[in-house]
Nucleic acid binder design. Structure first.
Lengths: 259, 259
DNA sequence: GGTAAAAATATCACATTCTGAGATTTTGGA
DNA sequence: TCCAAAATCTCAGAATGTGATATTTTTACC
């Protein structure tokens, strides 16, 4: 394992319950020598990925900045703002958006409805890959081979059965789940495409009672329309003919405030 | 420069206008050899800090997750939610919160008022250190020595004059700025303390017209009360007595997986 | 303001691990 | 199916990372 990978493991020590870690604890957990541990930490602090905090080190401001960069440029978020707001108004439900990143499905936005549900769908939440409408609405539309690979790596047994369920979702064009993520809640998820491939999903979240009382057909229709609208807004992709010759990058480097 | 630092420079290439970078461009900009560039990128992708995207690489999902970790545990955000909401209701202004991280001041939250101002105060925005009420409300309360060091490193000339201004802010207990960040806007910032040290600020943002029409005394009073309330909620810090003896690390030497 | 403990860095010999030019394989779009 | 671009492999040389201990800097408390 490269020293870079070892150093980046430090970031993995931070978690839902672990905002601050002492240097000694980092060193102990990763079994690094004292100078090495401090060297890694120092470099990460230098890059802003960590900060010194009371009692040790915490995740740093660069992460907040980088998330801002992603957020402000994410084509899905940019293309979907209006559609999502409209969806909330039309349905009265909470709307969530998930993105597929490599082999992870992460919540990228949660637009609160008029009666927000007390559910932790914040941006940054990682979703189970094969459970819940948001994820199913994504993975169902992956190419067969890729789905199988993904499932075997993360899901485990019984792929045939799961593949059937996903085929049903694909035929329907959307996924519904009852209490798979939160008891008493219903999720309806629709895929978002970028060009020909799924890149995420848009989902309605509502209580079981709301679901039973609602005009479900209209709900689904609305959702699918919004998802389609988002996908269309994303369409303008790579219309540029591939350049024959590689362009030489301009030589000046990114200016940055000196440390 | 360590290889770790070199690899992390890749992250600095992404910016406000640069969501996706081709491998060749990364290599060209950083002047790395092809295998080295790809090695770095591969490792960063492995850590989730980058993802493969159409046309190259983009910032990865791990960043979104890490920001979530910061967001959900940030003691300031946790302690201030109520106070900030109250402040918005009471004043009708937008409220922003900034945090001091090492030598950076970063926006950590923007609570929209009833008539949201069209201003980019999103979480993740880095603020100039010595301009605008939010930053002044922070740096004015730094220990003298630290302020001077910070100023000379990032601010430049005329420290004496600046120090005087900051002293005035310190005496007043809050900072006001007129159009220093956005023309036509007024900012009023109050410091937030964690224990004895400044860790951030809470700020009201309003238009010049609103400011002129407002009961400014009441506005400031409200703001200071909220800032104090947040600081108090943060108080419970390190009540644990320091252990007398350092714990001995387990003596077995570092086992390491052979390559 | 001064003091002691803890946190963080410096030192330096050694060898692990990183580097880079070119060839090679894999990917993905028509 | 094919082709071009993207990404990885190989391997010798050497730069760079490593770790035990000593030293400096910071922090917190009086």
């Amino acid at each position: 394992m490269s020293s870079l990978a070892r150093a980046l493991k430090v970031l993995d020590l931070f978690g839902e319950e672990t905002a601050v870690l002492g240097a000694d604890e980092i060193i102990a957990r990763l079994k690094y020598s004292r100078p090495t541990g401090y060297r890694y930490v120092r470099t990460l602090v230098g890059a802003g990925l960590l900060v010194r905090a009371r009692g040790g080190y915490a995740l740093g401001p660069r992460i907040i900045e980088l998330d801002w960069i992603i957020r402000t440029q994410d084509p899905v978020l940019l293309a979907s703002r209006q559609a999502v707001r409209g969806l909330v108004t039309a349905t009265g439900c909470d709307v969530t958006q998930m993105g597929l990143y490599g082999e992870r499905i992460v919540t990228i936005h949660h637009e609160l409805g008029p009666r927000p549900l007390a559910i932790g769908y914040d941006r940054g939440r990682t979703m189970p890959l094969f459970r819940g409408a948001p994820s199913k609405a994504i993975v169902a539309f992956l190419p067969r081979a890729r789905l199988e690979r993904l499932y075997r790596r993360h899901g485990g047994r019984g792929f045939a059965r799961f593949a059937e369920e996903m085929q049903a979702v694909r035929r329907a064009g959307y996924a519904v789940s009852f209490g798979e993520l939160d008891v008493g809640k219903v999720g309806i998820g629709a895929p978002v495409f970028h060009g020909a491939r799924v890149t995420g999903s848009v989902c309605l979240v509502l209580t079981r009672a709301q679901y039973d009382a609602a005009d479900r057909g209209a709900l689904v229709e609305r959702l699918l329309a919004s998802a389609a609208r988002i996908s269309e807004a994303l369409e303008p992709v790579a219309p540029e003919p591939r350049p024959r010759r590689r362009m030489t990058a301009s030589p000046r480097s990114t200016p940055r405030t000196p440390a």
